[in-house]
């Protein structure tokens, strides 16, 4: 079931800034990563979904409601981690959580306590003196605590150490199991690889690519690094092998690319000479994105 439907969403801030004709659909229970360089439109997209910005054209429909017009109604089902963390004036994390729960119309502290425990956050700390990481954790607690079925996160792991980053991704996986729909803007590809079902690549406000992480992980094109023991082997392979993509004569090394079904053919070109090593170059999200952006630029 489609829960988020973005249709022709456009906001022109001038000088090429903004987002232009975004189109994508997200199904209930999906975890989506939005990525792209600084200024590519990640935050602007999420602000539209939150109903903080009115689109010039197009619309975002969430749960059957218009993200701009029905913004307050939607907040009953949406949780949010803003890209920039600044809290209202409260002395401690606890006071903030209490007041925020009250605004959300809830009195249930269970999730807040659970998430704080998972992130090893002391919520009784002075809100203003909190470190960047602690503030980020407090913002994460606030987003999760009302148990909203839809979650929008803008750079949610900023300031978290690797261990806490892992704990946060585990929380996302737990939420995913509960069937929650999550959109997460991030420039950290590993986070997308670890928790997302699909990803959206933005470049200068345009959608460049939408793909499933499964497809990317099981990319049918493989590449290998092959190093020869001698110059002859290297030269012969470069001359005859059709799969050679690049070569590095100083290491007697070739890089070959082929589809899964061609993999046996490679041995015809390497078995005559002594091979020092063969190692696979993993096709990951980074390579995928580079190829998408590179392809567009050339």
């Amino acid at each position: 079931m489609t829960i988020i439907d973005v249709k022709g969403l456009t906001k022109d801030f001038g000088e090429g800034k903004g987002i232009f004709d975004l189109n994508f659909e997200i199904k209930q229970g999906e975890v989506i990563g939005i990525t792209g360089a600084n200024g590519s439109g990640k935050t602007t997209t999420i602000r539209h979904l939150m109903g903080f910005i009115k689109p010039d054209q197009g619309q975002a429909i969430i749960n059957g409601l218009d993200a701009w017009k029905d913004s307050s109604e939607l907040k009953k089902v949406v949780g949010y981690i803003p890209g920039e963390i600044a809290f209202p004036d409260y002395p401690t994390g606890n006071e903030f959580i209490k007041a925020q729960l009250e605004l959300m119309g809830s009195k249930n502290y269970d999730i807040a306590n659970y998430v704080a425990h998972k992130l090893k956050l002391d919520t009784s700390a002075n809100l203003k003196r909190m470190s960047k990481g602690m503030k980020q954790k407090t913002a994460i607690v606030a987003a999760f605590m009302s148990d909203s079925p839809i979650l929008f996160f803008d750079e949610p792991t900023t300031g978290l150490d690797p261990l806490m980053r892992r704990a946060f991704l585990d929380l996302i996986l737990e939420e995913k199991k509960k069937g929650k729909t999550i959109i997460m803007a991030t420039h950290i590809y590993e986070e997308i690889e670890q928790v997302c079902d699909r990803y959206i690549l933005l470049d200068k406000g345009h959608v460049v690519d939408i793909a499933s992480l499964d497809e990317i992980k099981h990319h049918e094109q493989k590449s290998f690094k092959i190093g020869f023991a001698s110059k002859e082997g290297f030269e012969w392979a470069v001359k005859t092998c059709p799969f050679v993509k690049t070569n590095r004569p100083q290491y007697n090394q070739i890089i070959v690319e082929m589809y899964d079904q061609e993999i046996n053919e490679i041995f015809d070109y390497v078995h005559r000479f002594k091979v020092k090593y063969i190692s696979e170059i993993k096709y990951d999200l980074r390579k995928h994105i580079e190829s998408k952006l590179g392809g567009k630029r050339s």
């Binding site: 939150m50 913004s71 009953k76 949780g79 803003p82 809290f87 209202p88």
Partner: peptide, 15 residues
């Protein structure tokens, strides 16, 4: 300006 308004507007209260 600070961004703390995000928390008020993340709750189901009309602007």
């Amino acid at each position: 300006d600070r961004g703390s308004m995000a928390y008020i507007l993340s709750s189901p209260i009309k602007r």
